[in-house]
Simulated assay, not measured.
Amino acid sequence: MTMPDGAVAVSPRQELMPAAALFHSLSDATRLAIVQHLTGGEARVVDLTERLGLAQSTVSAHLACLRDCGLVVGRPQGRQMFYSLTHPELLDLLSAAQTLLGATGSAVALCPNFGTAGASPATGVEVRGE
């Protein structure tokens, strides 16, 4: 469908796709942990691997995802790369999420599709059939 001014009509679902992509980029616990750490300022991959106890390749892959989504940026200094958040509004989003989790008593953790109720305590991966 074409609008009178030449613009193409977009369905309400299509309008929400960028927001869905944003939330999907933040839907991984490792990426959230990286973002949370970066709220305190710049960090190198080595800082994040030590903090999170993860392999360098894992942290780098998650940083690449966050960078591709425009949420973090790398600043080279010599042979090192310092990562930081690109938009301070991300702090507001994280704060609002914490407020919402508090208001719901973290009920989202019980969600049968996305919650942590069926997750293994060691890995956070859902265990079915146990």
Rank of each mutant, 00 (worst) to 15 (best):
M1V: 06
T2A: 13
T2Q: 13
T2I: 12
M3H: 02
P4E: 08
G6S: 02
G6N: 01
A9F: 12
A9R: 06
S11E: 03
R13A: 15
E15Y: 00
E15W: 02
E15L: 11
M17T: 03
M17V: 07
P18W: 01
P18R: 00
A19F: 04
A21G: 00
A21I: 02
H24A: 14
S25E: 13
L26S: 04
S27P: 00
D28I: 08
D28M: 06
R31W: 01
L32P: 00
Q36H: 10
T39S: 04
R44F: 00
R44S: 10
V45S: 12
V46M: 06
T49I: 11
T49A: 09
R51T: 14
L52D: 07
L52S: 10
G53Y: 10
Q56R: 15
Q56I: 10
T58L: 03
V59S: 05
S60T: 15
A61V: 14
A61S: 14
H62P: 09
A64C: 07
C65W: 08
D68V: 03
C69T: 04
C69W: 02
L71T: 05
V72T: 13
V72S: 05
V73D: 11
G74D: 02
R75T: 06
P76N: 08
G78I: 09
R79A: 03
S84Q: 07
S84H: 06
S84E: 08
L85A: 05
L85P: 05
H87D: 08
H87N: 11
H87L: 11
H87I: 04
L91W: 00
L94N: 01
L94E: 01
L94I: 04
S95W: 05
A97G: 08
A97N: 10
L100G: 06
L100V: 14
L101P: 02
A103F: 05
A103V: 08
G105W: 01
S106L: 09
A107K: 03
A109V: 04
L110R: 11
G115M: 05
A117Y: 11
G118A: 13
G118K: 09
P121I: 02
T123L: 10
G124K: 11
G124Q: 05
E126P: 04
V127T: 12
V127G: 09
V127N: 08
R128K: 09
R128T: 13
G129E: 15
E130F: 12
